[in-house]
């Protein structure tokens, strides 16, 4: 057996020297040292030997096993180092294109809407919603716009082809998000701080600057001591955060039947910061939205006591804001599902 062991040892050493990769090495190790390997086979014979021989051969076979195991490890190390040296010789053309991975894109209006909602939420506003098919009552009368008002003319409003209701009048596509003012007041009462982003419709021809379908954001803040100074503060903060630079706002008198005092809000031109440039047509200000203190008739329509509560409302075009924010030159892109456009966002 001693000879057998020696022979095996030499055989292994010789084969080891010829091995050039890790796979062959592993196979060789299994062949000789594995559970069914040749060394094990020899060792099985051990039980047939006398106690004395068992001691000597046992020791020898252990020694051989350990020796071979060490050799295998050395060889493995050698092979690994060789591979490492080889790896280091390689280099890559880093200018080759990276593998393409894709993710989908959100619509620019969605992106902006999420930002708007986040900022207003931080200022304590809830986000509300309302139906897009409205009644004339909610869209007009409830907002102090009587049937004789010019805004009620056919050319501005889409009407639904259905018979009118006694209280509610005709069904219309909401022309602004303002009907949600009254709906929210009726639902939650005062005090109230909400914004309402949503789709609105105007019956007017579409061109590069006009769309019959666009998105607005309505704002409403009602409490015991809410003032116009607060409106200025909230909008200045909102715009500053949205555009990530200091933005100032100014008010001008304006007229909307559902607010009194009514005003127009401009913000300082983003490009020239109020000095006057091409973008703001040298005025230094960009027209942004209509706003004002909620008219007492609107509070009454919302079952809120105008003697106890007061507040303001505003409405701005999210679509217009998107055009400004992303410098989009044609409003029609927003409602045209063209992937070449949408994948830019």
């Amino acid at each position: 057996m001693k000879e057998q062991l020696l022979k095996l040892k030499n055989e292994v050493i010789e084969k080891l020297s010829k091995i050039s990769n890790e796979n062959d090495l592993r196979e060789l190790e299994i062949k000789y040292l594995g559970r069914k390997g040749e060394l094990t086979t020899i060792l099985r014979e051990l039980k047939n030997l006398s106690e004395e021989e068992k001691k000597i051969i046992g020791a020898l076979s252990n020694e051989t096993k350990q020796y071979l195991e060490q050799k295998f490890e050395e060889k493995l190390n050698e092979l690994k180092n060789k591979k490492l040296d080889q790896d280091l010789k390689e280099s890559i053309d880093y200018t080759l294109p990276g593998k393409k991975y894709e993710f989908g894109h959100l619509h620019p209006i969605t992106i902006l809407q999420q930002r708007v909602e986040t900022i207003f939420s931080q200022m304590g506003f809830s986000v509300m919603d309302g139906p897009e098919i409205e009644s004339e009552w909610y869209n007009f009368e409830g907002l102090n716009i009587p049937s004789t008002h010019p805004a009620r003319d056919m050319q501005d409003t889409f009407f639904i082809d259905q018979e009118a209701d006694d209280k509610h009048g005709n069904l219309v596509l909401r022309t602004h998000t303002s009907p949600v003012q009254v709906r929210t007041m009726l639902k939650y009462g005062a005090p109230l701080r909400v914004i309402v982003p949503g789709r609105v419709f105007r019956n007017e021809a579409t061109d590069a600057r006009h769309e019959h379908t666009f998105d607005q954001v309505e704002g409403l803040c009602v409490d015991e001591n809410i003032s116009l100074s607060h409106l200025k503060g909230v909008m200045q903060e909102f715009l500053t955060r949205l555009f990530e630079k200091e933005v100032k706002v100014r008010f001008r008198p304006g007229f909307f039947p559902f607010v009194e005092p009514g005003l127009e809000l401009d913000f300082s031109c983003l490009l020239c910061a109020g000095k006057g440039c091409k973008v703001c047509k040298n005025i230094g200000w960009l027209e942004f939205m209509g706003a004002g203190m909620v008219h007492e008739n609107v509070l009454k329509a919302g079952k809120i006591d105008p003697k106890k509560y007061q507040g303001w409302a505003f409405g701005f075009g999210l679509t217009r804001l998107a055009l400004m924010r992303y410098e989009i030159d044609d409003i029609r892109h927003l409602m045209t599902p063209n992937l070449q456009f949408l994948k830019q966002f």
Binding site: S121, M123, G124, F125, S126, Y188, P191, R193, V194, C221, D223, I226, S227, L228, S229, H230, K232, G233, V234, Q236, E237, V249, R250, F251, R252, P253, E260, P261, G262, L263, M293, H295, E296
Partner: peptide, 30 residues
Amino acid sequence: DDLIEEIARMYGYDNLEPTLPPLPIKLPIK
């Protein structure tokens, strides 16, 4: 309110200082 508008605009909206309304005690409606 119509009179308040006359006063506000002639006094000058530019003279209003931007102020944030105090936060209500309750969190916004979820």
